[in-house]
Design a binder for these strands. Structure first.
Lengths: 230, 230
DNA sequence: GTCATCATGTAAGCCGTTACATGATTGC
DNA sequence: GCAATCATGTAACGGCTTACATGATGAC
């Protein structure tokens, strides 16, 4: 789950851990909160696996992902140079900024498609659904739909079985479970319909591959993902 | 969380682990599912702490707990009666049936009141809310209300902040978060209102203390939950 | 006599948390 | 110079899951 959040966020901007945490908080709400204790180890692991790579904040790396860690030099330079920077033109460089690699993109794609019972995982997947090709998106939504339908049936059973003999509170809990699931289901249905209607609304969103480290320097300044905004 | 589920269920019937799991499944839906790997250790721990006590299915244990202990007779009868016990005079004793103790009742009470951010915990608390005295119930609901209101504010912020620049899917996710939270809030409000209206609806539900091991035999005979199969 | 089910437990491991330790930069 | 914030990490631990090991009972 944390991999999904990290890779999804890095797909759009190169970020350092600290900000990654802030973004994940504001972007994904209080639901998918990550703590430093899991974030930094996750970043380290993803870096080991070659899914993300540290990049120099000042100089966007030209030949970034050779598989071997040739970026060590860059990092060292940026570490060394940080001291005297002070209030001069250079921004502080002590932070470790990460970017997603082609390997990471593939991993992200598979994480976005993977079926998962967990609600929060689905929320994350949908939040980043623009990175999925349209067919995969449809598959994801349909899978979720089936899942919710099964859950609804079960919840309904629980209600019917209990009948009138249920305690007030327990009955209320179950009724609410049914309602909530219906609500979620209606939402998914709307999304599926929108998906069918819009074969291609106006923008070309599928797999643009932007933001990858290998692509070269990514302008972190303005907005590159927003595309044709609205 | 598992303690809450176990104690809440044991408050009503004496049960053995295997059935505890089935009950928790059917009673609490797919949300709060427990696995054996956590259930049995939890039972062992609770027993060590004196919150639950194993009772002999066959022989009514004289004093299983420091306190009082006349139980099991009924249970044994019920167990034996359900399925004609084979040739031996001994009914199968391999199962370990647990009952809640006064210590466990106190623990349950505190677990029912404890504020917790986790949604599933609240669901469990509410499902067993009949075991709470009315004032504590009100406190619980009010706390939940505040929690949801904070969450709503945050979700709303996320929506407003993103404004029109948000990606379709991300915006949909956030809108749905707002709606869902509103839905939950409305539900809580209804519960609070019902709570105020019914000072005493018709039954005396608060703290009956039934089902406790120390209280003695509990009628587990005919319909306690699964009951009259429609 | 063998299979499905009932029943209890242990072991390994995942995924995440809180708390701690450390240090640089910025603002006053 | 001092505090707040930015920034990165480690350590210990918690809770729950899957998979495994074991065995009794009852049905056929």
């Amino acid at each position: 789950m944390i991999d999904l959040a990290v890779l999804g966020l890095l797909k759009e901007h190169q970020l350092h851990g600290y900000e990654l945490k802030k973004r994940s908080r504001e972007l994904l709400g209080p639901l998918a909160r990550v703590s430093y204790g899991s974030l930094y180890p996750a970043l380290a692991r993803l870096e080991r696996d070659g899914a993300v790579a540290a990049v120099d904040e000042a100089a966007p790396a030209p030949s970034p992902i050779p598989g071997t860690g040739s970026l060590g030099g860059e990092v060292a330079a940026f570490q060394a140079g940080r001291r005297r920077v002070g209030r001069t033109s250079h921004p502080r460089r002590r932070r470790k900024v990460y970017g997603i690699t082609p390997v990471g993109e593939r991993r992200l794609a598979s994480l976005l498609e993977a079926a998962d019972e967990d609600d929060r995982t689905f929320t994350l997947q949908l939040a980043f659904a623009r990175h999925l090709p349209a067919p995969a998106r449809r598959v994801l939504l349909e899978a979720r739909r089936r899942q919710l339908e099964a859950r609804l049936a079960e919840a309904q059973d629980g209600l019917d079985a209990g009948g009138g003999r249920l305690d007030t509170y327990l009955r209320s809990v179950r009724e609410h479970a049914v309602e909530s699931t219906r609500h979620d289901l209606a939402w998914i249905d709307r999304l599926i319909e929108a998906e069918q209607t819009n074969g291609r609304p106006d923008a070309p969103p599928p797999t643009p591959s932007t933001g990858a480290v290998a692509t070269g320097a990514v302008r972190t300044g303005s907005e590159h993902t927003g595309g044709p905004h609205r």
